Amino acid sequence: MLRVLAVDDEAPALGELLYLLRADPRVHSAEGAGDATEALRRIGRALESGQGGDEGVGGVDGIDGIDVVFLDIHMPGLGGLDLARLLGGFARPPLIVFVTAHEGFAVQAFDLEAVDYLLKPVRRERLAEAVRRVHELVHATAQAPAPEQIPVELGGVTRFVSVDTIAYVEAHGDYARLHTDHGSHLVRIPLSALEERWAARGFVRIHRSHLVALARIDELRLDGGATSVRVGDAELAVSRRHARHLRDLLMRRAP
């Protein structure tokens, strides 16, 4: 079960969030802090007391006694993004879920590897989904890498898409279109940034306009000197610059 710290400078919002969290059967305990300074004091006390034991990330790879911090962004003094950066510097940081009235910080949340990004007023069903994601990550095996999430906008609502569901990415200037198992999403992240970030996850550049998950390539086609790949229903051109490297990667992958 989860040990939760919620941080918000607005007492009514904090009280409502704690009420909903404590009603979730996956939450062992939920404590509140009115600002980042109080949150750091609580985290310090948790470290000193050596809480944690067998449940949750505490004692595995989170701050002892705290599995996840539900964190407001706009607060007096130290803001939520700043606090998340500070926590990220710990040897065993807790997971982060942002809870905010502002939609414009999803990209920063992505950069800080937040598990989720909730908009106020928080709906019970949406909070339950965030708790489910945290619960799965906390109880995953220590060897399994956490699935990276990327924020996308759908009808004014921020959702997080798992990188594991992305087959290929298409460049759109300073934006990129993610082609997933369930549709496509435009995000304000350059293709070059995703190429560098996802190289270790098996994504390879095949053209100045396309980045492809190597495991999703179904066919490699050679036609009159031109090279292309089939990824699901899409056929994508491979530039001469990238063709030889791609063939080498696919040959090494073959049984």
Rank of each mutant, 00 (worst) to 15 (best):
L86F: 08
D24W: 07
A254I: 03
L214F: 13
T37A: 14
I63K: 00
R197P: 04
P255I: 05
D8V: 05
L86S: 05
T158R: 09
L214P: 12
R22E: 13
L220F: 14
I63Q: 05
R92L: 14
D218I: 02
L249E: 02
H135V: 05
A6C: 04
V131N: 09
A144T: 15
S192Y: 01
V69K: 09
D8G: 01
V231F: 08
A234V: 02
D164V: 08
H139V: 01
P255E: 06
A128P: 12
V115M: 00
V238T: 00
Y19L: 09
T180N: 01
A226T: 15
R247P: 02
E10T: 09
A114L: 10
V131I: 15
R126G: 08
A23R: 15
V69F: 13
A213C: 00
L86A: 10
F203H: 07
R159G: 00
S239V: 01
G173V: 11
V138A: 15
L246K: 07
L21W: 09
V212G: 08
V27E: 02
E38D: 03
E125M: 07
D233N: 09
R205Q: 05
L78W: 00
L220D: 08
L112D: 12
A109W: 02
I73R: 01
A226S: 13
A200M: 13
I166V: 15
L20W: 11
L178C: 13
G32I: 06
